[in-house]
Design a protein around this nucleic acid. Structure first.
Length: 979
RNA sequence: GCAGGGGUAGCAAAGCCCGGUCAAAUGCGCAAGGCUUAGGACCUUGUGUCUUAGGACUUCGUGGGUUCAAAUCCCACCCUCUGCACCA
């Protein structure tokens, strides 16, 4: 079978039959979507996992008789595509290299993609072609791009709804920022694709000279222990005037939260006590922080001038000296540092280096078991840290911080008794409230450089718009929706719950990017995670809207249209309605709610949770509509969210820098569609990362070849299969258990165990079967198997299905597997005793082998297998029930057959009880064991190179073997080998 | 720091919820044999240690505990991965 061309043949037939283009009908619908792709590069096998998982589910549901809709579109919103186009325009050699080497896109083609639109078109075509080659059962009639004018209308409608609900807010917001490009930076904008990490820290204000000295610290709880401040004697300082922070603004008519407790967002707002101040900074810090605070330079201040000042402690006003220290980096924080020698190794070391430890006595703040009054000093001495430039100082700092955070106790009021972590939060809050500290944002992983080369800073963006996910009433609704949803993998539910609780305001606009203009501020674009929350609703009406726009112009599609179609609100002017409106409403009502939403698990914490949020908000306004039918808002909420892990390549994470990205279409060309589908989805549990490797792919191919060979033999068989042998019945018993389990496995996305059963275990069984029997009876197996594997490997399944010709064993004539029903197991064929018998036979073979290897005899003349006397099974049952020798003997007395050989029973029971763990299950009785062994005599003989096989009962054993025979146990015949 | 996941034989990975049938599925790798002109593919067997009769012993991150019995339950500790937002 040619795995490389199979998909062409079958995809043509499916398309001819329009199988994946469903229509509104009376039947049960099933509507599922997967997160649409972002076309800024071709897709690789990693992308294929989510889509294949979705497609398997779609095909499975189709086989269950559902009218299945699986649409697809392209997400082009945001800045990465712009950034990519810009890099191409600039001729970025790294990018050209990646496209050329990894994806095989020649530079002359790349060079043409300088326009965002042409870039989007190029890659979306590529991605669409890949999805088609993968055989995804997608209804392509519904395709759109998120920059399409009709989609923009839809998203603007969505924001009008959120606004009406009072869920849009405006304010200021810190973002990672490139001062050169004058725009926010994300991971795709930085050198080395470094994701800038925002972190909030506290800057404590010490009054000194003409203003305040702000010192940034991770440990505000050590404030009482401050003995001095540090200034870098070689840095250049300035005095600046800070201005009032801009006020926050709240949008919307309804205050869902009104009257309740104070806003959580409080930490972002400037506290009343924080009056405009003058502060000292290094020049570098002034430069950096001016993006975050409005301030103006008053004058330069030499370090020497600062060193001559004394500061006053914010808590008790005591005078604090200002000393020089080399470890203070002028570019980090404010360029000024507070010194807590008792708890900060750097501070203690710097004081020691200055020989000032005597006059500047460390002040203990936290009491920690194992440490005395000056933990930092004690630790430095213990670790032998030489001075403030010794790398070990960093190590000591980390260690001490960790220890004191948990087991340190604050010594003095009002924080006495708290540990480091608790005290830190309290003191920080108290200081900020009292205006004695500033809340400052820094980049935790600084330095981060923009692609343009500039050093990134934190900018406080004004006029930023938010979706207010912090709204408690909304959260409650969302929790309700979440509780009603099926979440797979189930363990992720608490992640969703955590996310719902943790989400606050989410910036929903940006100054640049593709997508939809923000309706309340034309200078802003809606960002990518905010325009992809409810688009599943748009798919249902996309073809109609497209047609309407083509016929009557885009203006016809307005808020009233969406209000009617999605919410059932009649327009004020009834004449506005056209038949298209009603058709759209019908489509929407038929397909919604969304039955299943699929993505990779990185979207759980944002997109998938947003989806639930926005659904509850927008459909809260759902109305009855003209037909008068009641439709509660909850009937539009999504029913299920499924997320899967990523794909690694040969055990390693795929990355551009490692060059180990396998483009999807290349993988298809190399291994064939169904092989890729299979490996990508089934080499790990849903929640884990799966691995794509050549060995696995080739393993799948070779097993498919094995199956195909058996299939060819099967269809060439002229004569009818005789009545089924024991081993045939064993094979079908095993197989039908697998068929029986398959349904639940598909339902639960247990694709790995399912795949293992379907291909690996089944092929192993097949091989055992063919070893045990010259004549195979496989027609029924293949008819089932083709349908069972159909969701996974639809092209191979079709090919097998076709090869089988007229179906006999299972299915009513169905021209293609794609529209066949999902098979049900013939449970009558499942017989545990057959499987036990075969297991018994296998263990006998194993034992004989073991013996032969021990006695170093490969070719014995004869092997006697002696089956236990039937009373032994009775005794075994008693042991299993009582697990105690005395109780067993008591029970044995009541049984005439056992009581007359009490001694033998006691001996046997003693033996069995030693291995009590191994006798919990059922066992074959003596006759069944005889049957199995007798049936397999010929087979056993051939396994042991022609040895004569003798099967006996214990009581029939000749005197010479009597001693040996008495060792026979249920499940374990006595074995005697004659050389 | 907060939240979540994980540590099982050479590697990957199941088992853990519901303790015994667990020296622990399965795949890869490795070794031997078969087939073959040869290689590949395929098939068989083996792959913790010891063992000339199917046995014994030691193993599932570390240390304790519960139990007749622990990879599985409880406690503590160590290590590790992921996410923490305006980024798709």
């Amino acid at each position: 079978m040619d795995f490389h061309s199979l998909h062409v043949k079958w995809q043509a037939r499916w398309n001819e039959a329009h199988i994946f283009e469903p229509h509104v009908s009376k039947g049960d619908k099933f509507y599922l979507t997967a997160a649409f792709p972002y076309p800024n590069s071709p897709q690789h096998i990693g992308h294929a996992r989510t889509y294949t998982t979705t497609d398997i589910y779609a095909r499975y549901m189709r086989m269950n008789g559902k009218n299945v809709l699986f649409p697809m579109a392209f997400h082009v919103t945001g800045t990465p595509i712009l950034a990519m186009a810009k890099r191409i325009q600039a001729g970025d050699p790294e990018l050209f290299g990646i496209f050329d080497k990894i994806y095989g896109i020649p530079p002359e083609t790349t060079r043409t993609l300088t326009e965002p639109k042409s870039l989007v078109l190029f890659f979306s075509k590529e991605i669409e072609a890949g999805m088609k080659e993968m055989g995804y059962s997608i209804d392509w009639r519904r395709k759109f791009y998120t920059f399409d004018a009709i989609f923009n209308k839809f998203i603007q409608w969505q924001f009008h709804k959120l606004h009406e609900a009072g869920l849009i807010a405006k304010g200021s917001h810190p973002v990672p920022w490139c001062p050169a490009d004058q725009q926010p930076v994300g991971g795709h904008d930085t050198q080395g694709d470094l994701d800038p990490q925002l972190e909030e820290v506290t800057a404590v204000l010490f009054q000194a000279g003409e203003g305040f000295i702000p010192t940034i610290t991770y440990r505000p709880e050590t404030l009482p222990g401050v003995t001095n401040l540090w200034v870098n004697p070689n840095a250049k300082y300035v005095l600046v005037q800070m201005k009032e922070a801009a006020e926050e603004e709240k949008m919307g008519k309804k205050e869902a939260n009104a009257g309740k407790k104070e806003k959580k967002a409080g930490k972002k707002e400037a506290p009343a006590a924080q009056k405009p101040k003058r502060i000292y900074l290094t020049r570098e810090a002034f430069e950096t922080l001016s993006h975050q605070f409005e301030m103006a330079k008053i004058k330069d201040v030499p370090a020497s001038e600062l060193l001559a000042l004394r500061a006053s402690h914010p808590a008790d006003g005591r005078a604090i000296p200002i000393l020089p220290a080399s470890f203070v980096d002028p570019a980090v924080g404010t360029g000024l540092v507070m010194s807590v020698p008792a708890h900060a190794p750097f501070d203690w070391l710097a004081l020691r280096d200055l020989h000032k430890l005597d006059e500047t006595k460390p002040i203990q703040v936290l009491d920690t078991p194992g440490f005395g009054p000056c933990p930092a000093g004690e630790l430095c001495q213990k670790m032998g840290v030489k001075n403030q430039d010794d790398p070990k100082a960093q190590e000591a700092t980390k260690l001490l911080y960790k220890t004191e955070a948990h087991s340190g106790r604050m010594k003095s009021a009002p924080y006495a008794g708290l540990n480091g972590i608790e005290a830190k939060e309290r003191i920080k809050a108290d200081l900020v409230r009292a205006g004695q500290a500033l809340s400052v944002h820094i980049l935790a992983n600084a330095p981060v450089h923009c692609r343009c080369g500039a050093l990134c800073v934190v900018k406080q963006v004004k006029n930023q718009w938010f979706i207010d996910y912090g709204n408690e009433a909304w959260k409650a609704k969302t929790r309700e929706a979440l509780a009603a949803m099926r979440i797979r993998p189930a363990g992720l539910r608490q992640d969703y719950e955590y996310t719902v609780g943790w989400l606050q305001r989410k910036a929903c606009t940006r100054a640049s990017g593709l997508g939809t203009q923000f309706p309340f501020d034309e200078t802003q674009m809606i960002e990518a995670l905010s325009d992809s929350t409810i688009y599943m609703a748009f798919y249902t009406i996309a073809p109609i809207v497209k047609k309407m726009a083509a016929d009557g112009g885009i203006e016809k599609i307005d808020d009233q249209f969406f209000d009617f179609v999605l919410l059932g609100k009649e327009p004020a002017d009834k004449k506005k309605k056209t038949p298209d409106w009603d058709e759209a409403r019908r489509e929407f009502l038929y397909w919604y709610p969304l039955d299943s939403r699929h993505s990779a698990h990185d979207l759980v914490h944002n997109h998938l949770t947003f989806m639930i949020f926005i659904h509850t908000a927008v459909f809260a306004q759902a109305q009855e509509g003209a037909d008068g039918k009641k439709r509660p808002a909850s009937s539009f909420w999504p029913r299920q969210a499924v997320s899967n892990g990523f794909v690694t390549m040969e055990g390693k994470k795929m990355s551009k820098s490692m060059g180990n990205i396998l483009p999807l279409r290349k993988a298809i060309a190399q291994y064939g569609t169904d092989v890729v589908r299979f490996v990508v989805t089934s080499s790990a549990e849903l929640e884990a990362d799966s691995d794509f490797n050549q060995a696995a792919a080739e393993g799948v191919i070779s097993r498919l070849n094995v199956l195909e060979n058996y299939l060819k033999k099967t269809i060439n068989e002229k004569t009818k299969a005789p009545s089924r042998s024991r081993i045939s019945r064993w094979f079908y018993s095993r197989f039908h258990s697998r068929v029986r389990d398959a349904r639940a496995q598909y339902d639960e996305f247990q694709l790995r165990p399912l795949a293992k059963a379907l291909l690996y275990d089944t092929v192993n069984d097949l091989q055992w079967y063919s070893r045990r029997s010259a004549r195979l009876d496989l027609r029924e197996f293949f008819e089932y198997w083709a349908l069972l594997a159909n969701p996974f490997m639809p092209h191979v399944a079709e090919e097998f299905w076709e090869m089988l010709g007229e179906k006999k064993a299972y299915a009513a004539a169905c021209p293609m597997a794609v529209s066949a029903g999902f098979p049900s197991a013939d449970t009558k064929q499942i017989d545990p005793s057959l499987e036990m018998g075969e297991q018994y036979l296998q263990s006998v073979i194993e034992d004989v082998r073991h013996i032969l290897s021990l006695i170093k005899n490969e070719k014995p003349a004869s092997i006697s297998l002696i089956v236990h006397s039937s009373w032994k099974k009775k005794a075994r049952a008693l042991v299993a029930a009582h697990k105690n020798i005395k109780a067993v003997m008591d029970a044995a007395k009541k049984d005439p057959e056992l009581s007359k050989r009490a001694q033998a029973v006691a001996q046997l029971a003693g033996k069995l009880i030693k291995n009590i763990g191994s006798i919990t299950g059922e066992a074959l009785d003596a006759q069944e064991e005889m049957d199995v062994l007798t049936d397999a005599r010929e087979f056993l003989s051939s396994e042991f190179l022609g040895a004569k096989i003798e099967v006996l009962r214990e009581e029939d054993a000749p005197p010479a073997l009597a001693a040996k025979a008495s060792n026979a146990l249920p499940g374990k015949p006595s074995i005697f080998v004659s050389p």
